[in-house]
């Protein structure tokens, strides 16, 4: 067991170090959510004067930040395959499960770091004032949410192996997951069709839990959100492991 832990750490370390080495990725990954928060929050906020829209979407934007980075981390296995590094991983005396877990935790780490930065900025801007416990719980939710999204990315990377479809995959997963969720719109005001779709979207539960913790405005009971997230995480991680197990160079 200790043996596999050091190997999981190796895969995790690679993900985190790659991220730390890429300054453009760090800046880029924070710029987009900030644009969303400021432009969308300010613009749409002006349309709904009775509703504090920027406060409402802060958890949604944190969710978006994690969603984008985590999908990218999971799907980056396609790049590892293209650029050859996957061979180095697959030929090591390491189980496939180790690689999946290390990859999921590595992607989750960089995602949660970014999510935490957005949360900190939100607090500084006065969009939220959660308690310390609330912040710690929010980080915990971010970890579960990010790990499950990376797993979904790994699932797609294991099925789709062509680098040409990389951008398409990223867009086809990310855009619906983000827009067909409660990240930008309150569930109570949604048209029926959107409400139904968002109910089957893991992003909605991550964002709802964060909303409960950050500004007490979640729709579902907090425990329900956590249970649903954990259930999806277990299924997604298991599926990612099984599919990645079948992948070859």
């Amino acid at each position: 067991m200790a043996i596999e832990l050091i190997k999981i750490y190796a895969v995790w370390f690679r993900e985190v170090k790659r991220f730390a080495n890429s300054k453009s990725r760090i800046v880029g990954s924070l710029a987009m959510p900030l644009f969303f928060l400021i432009a969308l929050g300010g613009g749409i906020g002006a349309l709904v004067p009775d509703f504090n829209y920027p406060t409402f979407i802060l958890p949604g934007i944190i969710g978006m930040t994690i969603l984008f980075n985590s999908i990218f981390s999971g799907v980056s296995i396609i790049w590892d395959r293209e650029l050859g590094y996957l061979k180095e991983l697959l030929v090591a005396p390491t189980s496939r499960a180790t690689i999946v877990i290390g990859k999921a935790l590595g992607g989750a780490t960089t995602s949660v770091l970014q999510g935490a930065v957005i949360l900190a900025l939100g607090i500084i801007f006065g969009l939220a004032s959660p308690s310390l416990i609330g912040v710690l719980l929010a980080i915990f939710i971010m970890v579960i949410f990010a790990t499950l999204i990376v797993s979904i990315g790994i699932i797609f990377a294991s099925i789709i192996t062509e680098i040409e479809t990389f951008q398409l995959v990223v867009n086809l997963i990310m855009m619906p997951l983000f827009f067909l969720s409660n990240a930008l719109f309150p569930v109570e005001k949604m048209p029926e069709w959107l409400k139904t779709l968002s109910m089957f979207n893991p992003v909605s539960y991550g964002v709802d839990a964060l909303r409960t913790l950050i500004n007490g405005a979640g729709s579902n009971p907090f425990v329900l959100d956590i249970l649903i997230l954990l259930a999806i995480l277990i299924v997604a991680l298991g599926l990612a492991g099984a599919l990645f197990n079948r992948t070859s160079i």
């Binding site: 690679r14 170090k17 790659r18 650029l83 050859g84 590094y85 061979k87 180095e88």
Partner: peptide, 12 residues
């Protein structure tokens, strides 16, 4: 093993 195609991580 040293593969025919490069298998290093260029960003590390």
């Amino acid at each position: 093993i040293v593969f025919q195609d490069q298998t290093l991580d260029n960003r590390l």
